[in-house]
């Protein structure tokens, strides 16, 4: 006689905790064939508000950690993810309709992408920063620094785990914190990934996951004055021009939508940094 399974309740991930949506709403997540798989929390604007507060609170600590430490914390996520591969393969097969091989390939790619970015934590400032030979008795360095709190829309029609990872990893590397809306119709991997983070060494609030409708949530992000930058990677099917118009109110930096999964690149890291030039007088006496 087969054992009766215990289904998981998928909630939000805010400030290192897993609350239900304050709105009390959930939506059905179905398989490609249309069968019910689970309920996901239908995040609201107030959940978004809470997530931004959590992200803002966590930001100084995350960016203030040493680059080596950030790199290790990010690497730890990949380790834990590797150990829980089977769960992600299963969720991807169930919701995205992938074959076992495709699902495994997506999880592998997600782990490898994560590691690629983790390794940048203590290097990107060296590659993207400069020592400037100014004409005068001054020491002058330009260093990229995290922009702050970043809102992100993960890809909505590509692999749900890989899309999420390729979106948030480059944001986190430099010390930003993030509020991300994962793929709406396949949010399970995002919440399972949040569980990975919760059991790794990631401080609460560094990553916040709000499942639900990007169309509903993105405008609240774009108009939120305490979000410094907006990654529209998965917003291609939204009215992203309007999002950019709303973002312009606070000169929020925006990165335009991409097709599919964002390619791994240093540019995605530096897109969410600010170059700071520091001058100091320099003289022997």
């Amino acid at each position: 006689m087969s054992r009766l399974a215990v289904p998981k309740t998928y909630k939000l991930f805010i400030g290192g905790k897993f609350p239900r949506s304050e709105s009390g709403r959930v939506y059905e997540v179905n398989s490609v064939a249309g069968e019910f798989v689970a309920n996901a929390a239908q995040g609201s604007r107030k959940d978004m508000r809470d997530a931004v507060v959590a992200a803002r609170t966590a930001q100084p600590g995350w960016s203030g950690a040493t680059a080596y430490n950030r790199g290790q914390v990010l690497y730890r996520i990949a380790e834990v993810l590797e150990g829980r591969k089977a769960q992600f393969v299963e969720e991807i097969m169930l919701v995205e309709g992938s074959s076992a091989k495709e699902a495994a390939a997506q999880v592998d790619a997600a782990i490898d992408t994560w590691i690629w970015y983790a390794g940048w934590a203590d290097k990107y400032t060296q590659v993207a920063g400069q020592a400037n030979p100014v004409s005068g008795p001054y020491f002058n360095l330009s260093v990229p620094e995290p922009t702050g709190v970043v809102g992100a829309i993960a890809p909505q029609s590509s692999g749900s785990l890989l899309g999420l990872v390729a979106t948030i990893a480059p944001i986190l590397v430099s010390g930003n914190t993030v509020v991300v809306v994962p793929r709406e119709d396949a949010p399970l991997t995002a919440i399972s990934f949040a569980e990975v983070m919760a059991t790794s060494d990631v401080p609460g609030g560094v990553v916040n996951v709000i499942t639900g409708s990007p169309a509903e949530l993105a405008p609240w992000m774009a108009s939120h004055a305490d979000i410094n930058a907006l990654d529209l990677a998965g917003a291609g099917n939204l009215d992203w021009a309007s999002l950019q118009i709303a973002a312009a109110e606070t000169l929020m930096r925006t990165l335009a939508p991409v097709e599919g999964i964002p390619a791994s690149s240093l540019n995605r890291i530096t897109a969410f940094t600010e170059v700071k030039s520091v001058w100091h007088t320099k003289s022997l006496i």
Partner: peptide, 9 residues
């Protein structure tokens, strides 16, 4: 107070 050579010059 100290003297900043660059500023003084």
């Amino acid at each position: 107070p100290g003297v900043d050579a660059v500023g003084l010059e």
